[in-house]
Design a binder for these strands. Sequence first.
DNA 1: CTGAAAGCGCTTACAG
DNA 2: CTGAAAGCGCTTACAG
Lengths: 336, 336
Amino acid sequence: MNKFSLKDIAIEAGVSITTVSFVLNGKAKEKRISNRVTEKIKKIIAARNYKPNVFGRGLRTGKTTTLGLIVEDIGNFFFGNVAKTIELAAYRKGYKVIFTSTDNDDPKAKDLLTMLKHQQVDGFIITPTEGMRDAIIQLQKEKKSFVLFDRFFPDLNTSYVVLDNFSGAYDMTCHLVSKGYKKIAFVTINSNMIQMKERLEGYKAAIKRSGLVFDKTLVCSLPFLSVNGSDFETLKSFILTHNDIDAIFFATNYLGILGIDCLSSLGLSFPGDLAVTSFDDHDLFRLYKPGITVVAQPIEKLANEAIDLLLHLMEAEYSEPVQIRIPPELIFRGSE
Amino acid sequence: MNKFSLKDIAIEAGVSITTVSFVLNGKAKEKRISNRVTEKIKKIIAARNYKPNVFGRGLRTGKTTTLGLIVEDIGNFFFGNVAKTIELAAYRKGYKVIFTSTDNDDPKAKDLLTMLKHQQVDGFIITPTEGMRDAIIQLQKEKKSFVLFDRFFPDLNTSYVVLDNFSGAYDMTCHLVSKGYKKIAFVTINSNMIQMKERLEGYKAAIKRSGLVFDKTLVCSLPFLSVNGSDFETLKSFILTHNDIDAIFFATNYLGILGIDCLSSLGLSFPGDLAVTSFDDHDLFRLYKPGITVVAQPIEKLANEAIDLLLHLMEAEYSEPVQIRIPPELIFRGSE
DNA sequence: CTGAAAGCGCTTACAG
DNA sequence: CTGAAAGCGCTTACAG
């Protein structure tokens, strides 16, 4: 495909490959290549549409202009749009992106990280699973450039870009309280990862601050993306058992979607029978009748902060870890 | 990172790098390396967790175990889930995937293809834009392994995996006719690409076969993802102008989503005021009240066919182009 | 102002 | 049954 190598260009220009390489890498001035020769070489490179071979360069320099992106699930609305934004920003800077989904599976996640390291990507954006803690420590030891995304390890001093999950959950819960709801259920996933913990903590803190009593039986924890579809039944029976609930707050977009499915199959209407709110925005929440009140994540902002930070870390000689929290945005709709 | 090279392993095993390379590439038997030596080397490779350097190998062989995926928009429900399935299948086969979104932008799309070629990916899955025709011809001349996805060029004999769009549109239109609708509007995007043409043709054919008269003023063509959001207004005025329409068929998921938004903001209800159906399934269509009747694309099947075909083409010495059409699945819900 | 040469890590034709 | 050596395409320290 790349018929042309440095050598071919050199022959055509009647100079050495060294000289061509200098011109190619913008070192013509520094190396004092004459203007005449520089221009001549540039012309030939353009005419032949010559691009340096990635392997030759990679072997020599260890650089790839490729980034590794690890998300939870590229098919999810949130992560899919995050990926889109990151890819666009990377493209504009001349980087390729290798993308991978962990599906919250620890062994797969670790395997993916190894694969990306082995692939010599220049930097990583990682939505870590719980079990990746050691692998992240290792990555840091190896002085790789990376930023954690959506979640992080509280006891590890790494760079990250996350939503301020605590205040998102806190503000939404306060909102429900202010509307007069008193029995507010919180439906979350069974995860120790910080982003889910913070959402739960935000909910708890708001309940307590409001003078209500935190009742742990009002918290429903589902396993992550159970394949057998048992979530639906679990949630249904939770709702049926707690028939005094007057509001439900779903902790992620797919829980909210599941919740709407569930409530509607139970014939419950909202906000009539109970108020419904969710984390994350989604076309369904926006267009459902009534619209669902949500804690929206500013997706483009989150993704752009992550890629910008990563590129910054990659070019910095040395940098202290940078930790960014983006405020969420509450969108009030009819579901209360 | 990869501290260990072939050389290190060779030194540790007390053999030449040639021998290690043979073992590494499963040529031990063929090259008649003794069992004793083979086992010893394998043990060391495992113990050191040695992985061959991708650049060294790539430079020598030109192979990368990396695939290039070009979709329209990774943030879209359809393409996001396609990407997810492809990535999973590729991962299981030991391939990495570099993914890119064209956003239906010709120059970007061509640029992405060049980038992927330059990156020496072993194979391509491409959702082409209209303007990529020449680039695809070129790709074929270069004997690259690739499969077109979701759409293809009718006058080009290339491999592809697509939905049978014609029959999807045809069947849905017939369904509407059978329900008694007579003024069926078709909302599509302004594209000459085959998948949209076939949908329109399917609609037309069904109208004619049903003894109705094809009325081109009932076809509304919107520009692809106009940034300024003018689609909403265009569609709105189309609906207002044609107040005798008794059914609308949206030709893609994002048009259907836009349509629901639009109809609902006009205060129109369905199927009361008019029937509503769409191409592609989506959480919104499934859970909206009433549920939206759709022509669903079997996403996993489409994606798996594409990746399987690509892998087949990659390992085949030579293969005639393979062209696969997957039948759509109509899902009937309350919107008629 | 420019070039010859080493070396990054690998695979494989050739030799024995 | 095993190894020395060439060469893939590049960058850069060194020499002049």
